[in-house]
C-alpha cells in the first residue's frame, strides 16, 4: 500500500493545482520551478491548505475527502513540518521550541529522546538560547529537531535549505541525511535544487504549472513512470 495517495483539484485565483498520484517514499522529493505547485501540494498534505475538491489519504487513513466532507486539521495529522524560514516561536527558548509539541501530543512508541536528537543535529549547546540569536544554519537544524521531536508519522520539509547560503547548505544537508538514515520516518521534501533531489530522493515528483510531469522512482532499478497529466 502506498503511504500517500492523492487526487487533488485545487484552484486559488489564477493558480491551479491538479495532481493525482501515489507516494511510496521513504523519501519523496517534490521538485519543480517556482510556481509549479510543489509547496501547495506539500501544504495540502500538511492540512495548511484545504483544496476545493479531491481526496488525500495517508497510510490508509483518509485525511481529506471533499465529497464526504472529511478534513483532518493539521494538529490531528501527526506530522512534523520544517519550514523554509524555520518559523521558530520567538517568545520561547530553543529548548521550549523543541518540546512545544509535548504539551499537545502524547508520545508514541518511537518518540526520540531530546538529547539524542540534539546530539545528532549538533544543537545541544544552543538549548538555552533564544531563536533570535541563532545563525541560519543553526535555526534550520533546530527547526528540523523540533519537527522530529513531535514524533511525526510523516516529516514534511519545504525547501529547508533555500534560505541559506552555499556554505550553510553544505553544513545542514548531511544532518538531513543523518535524520533520514537514523529515524526511518517517511519524508516529503520540496526543493527546486536538482542536487538535493538527487542526493535525498527515493522518488522524485516533477511538477510544472500545477501539474505532475512524471514520478521517477529510483534505487530499485530506476523505473520512470510518466503520467499523461
Amino acid at each position: 500500500m502506498s503511504r500517500i495517495a492523492f487526487d487533488i483539484d485545487h484552484r486559488q485565483g489564477e493558480f491551479s493545482l491538479i495532481a493525482k498520484g501515489e507516494l511510496d517514499g521513504p523519501v519523496s522529493v517534490l521538485s519543480g520551478p517556482s510556481g509549479s505547485g510543489k509547496t501547495t501540494l506539500l501544504n495540502i498534505i500538511a492540512g495548511l491548505v484545504r483544496p476545493q475538491s479531491g481526496q488525500l489519504s495517508f497510510d490508509g487513513t483518509v485525511w481529506f475527502d471533499a465529497a464526504q466532507k472529511i478534513f483532518v486539521p493539521p494538529h490531528r495529522r501527526r506530522i512534523g513540518y520544517v519550514f523554509q524560514e524555520g518559523r521558530l516561536l520567538p517568545h520561547l527558548s530553543v529548548r521550549h521550541n523543541l518540546t512545544f509539541s509535548h504539551w499537545f501530543r502524547k508520545p508514541n512508541g518511537r518518540s526520540p529522546a531530546l538529547t539524542d536528537v540534539t546530539d545528532l543535529l549538533g544543537i545541544t549547546p544552543l538549548l538555552d538560547r533564544g531563536p533570535r540569536n541563532l545563525s541560519g544554519g543553526e535555526r534550520q537544524r533546530v527547526a528540523l529537531a523540533r519537527a522530529l521531536l513531535a514524533s511525526p508519522d510523516l516529516l514534511l520539509m519545504d525547501e529547508p535549505l533555500a534560505s541559506l547560503d552555499e556554505a550553510r547548505r553544505a553544513e545542514v544537508l548531511p544532518y538531513i541525511e543523518n535524520v533520514r538514515d537514523r529515524y526511518k520516518v517517511p519524508i516529503v521534501y520540496v526543493t527546486h535544487s536538482a542536487d538535493e533531489a538527487e542526493r535525498l530522493g527515493d522518488e522524485i515528483v516533477k511538477l510544472r504549472d500545477g501539474k505532475i510531469q512524471e514520478i521517477e522512482r529510483r534505487r530499485d532499478g530506476t523505473i520512470s513512470v510518466a503520467l499523461d497529466g
Partner: peptide
C-alpha cells in the same frame, strides 16, 4: 499567522495556538 500555522503542525489546536502563541506575542 505563519507562526500560528507552525504551532498547528506541532499538534496545537486553534484555541491552544491562540493561548500559547498568539496571546503571548
Amino acid at each position: 499567522s505563519k507562526l500560528e500555522d507552525a504551532a498547528g503542525t506541532l499538534g496545537a489546536g486553534p484555541l491552544l495556538v491562540f493561548l500559547t502563541v498568539t496571546l503571548p506575542l
